[in-house]
């Protein structure tokens, strides 16, 4: 299975008898946008927390780039090349957008035991940071402080920061949460531009966005993957319709 970048094998996690993640297996191929959908309470958050090292699975394996990374600490997931964005915006509120991204670039550039050279003038950090900001269309606001830009722009910043760690896989947790129509379509455009360049595991509620972007969709219900396929297959899958879309349509 060399063609998959991330492979999740029989992952289990339960909280006091409740199986939040129940024998989940899932594989994300190189270069694809793989969407993970599911109704509220399906266990998406628990799954993501395990895929970013914030929670330790009870059993099962996480293979990333043919390496077993189960049980790594959160920062080691990122170092291995698996970058995440947060559902609830998590950026450095009191730093400028450029500093935010530069920190992520720096994180990927080995240790930070350099005490003298001015990092704010270091072109090895600033130039790539600016490029990532450009990629998410924020280069004009580079010098602004993160707490002063709009919610949508902070969501874009999240993606830039994830990109800046040069990940092999982006794990995006509802990147469009709390966004208006225009802001959402901007994110969709940004993600489309990344297609083929980066593998993406996208957790999202916005079905329009999912169908517009995803190469493959996995449906998570009650902690289990009940279907995996292309958008056309998922749309016509009866089990999915019953468990998920049916609910939504009702």
């Amino acid at each position: 299975m060399t063609e998959s970048i991330l492979q999740v094998v029989n992952l289990c996690k339960s909280f006091g008898g409740v199986h939040a993640t129940d024998q989940v297996s899932l594989s994300v191929r190189h270069g694809e946008i793989h969407a993970l959908i599911g109704p509220n309470g399906a266990g998406k958050t628990t799954l993501i927390s395990q895929l970013s090292g914030l929670l330790r699975p009870d059993s099962g394996k996480i293979l990333f780039d043919n390496k077993d990374i189960t049980g790594y600490a959160a920062y080691q997931f990122s170092q291995a090349g698996l970058a995440r964005s947060f559902q609830i915006t998590s950026v450095f509120q009191d730093l400028s957008l450029l500093d935010n991204v530069a920190l992520a670039v720096q994180a990927n550039d080995g240790h930070a035991f350099r005490f003298w050279h001015n990092a704010r003038k270091d072109q090895r950090l600033r130039t790539p940071a600016m490029q990532y900001l450009q990629q998410v269309q924020l280069s004009d606001q580079a010098e602004q402080i993160a707490s002063e830009v709009s919610h949508g722009e902070r969501r874009q910043l999240e993606i830039a920061m994830a990109l800046a760690t040069s990940p092999k896989l982006l794990l995006l947790d509802e990147p469009m949460a709390g966004m208006g129509q225009d802001e959402s379509s901007l994110i969709i455009e940004i993600l489309k531009n990344l297609r083929g360049d980066k593998s993406i595991l996208l957790v999202e509620h916005d079905m329009d966005a999912v169908f517009a972007l995803a190469d493959t969709i996995s449906v998570l219900v009650y902690g289990q993957i009940i279907a995996t396929g292309t958008s056309a297959e998922i749309k016509t899958n009866t089990a999915v319709q019953k468990a998920y879309l049916g609910e939504d349509a009702a």
Binding site: A74, R84, R114, W116, N118
Partner: peptide, 26 residues
């Protein structure tokens, strides 16, 4: 000098949002 160095920036990041620092691999 330290506060503007890579080290200083890392410290500021940790002050501002430690969870984020972990997520970017620090």
């Amino acid at each position: 000098r330290i506060s503007n160095s890579r080290f200083g920036l890392t410290l500021q990041g940790a002050r501002s949002n430690e969870e984020r620092m972990l997520a970017i691999g620090v």
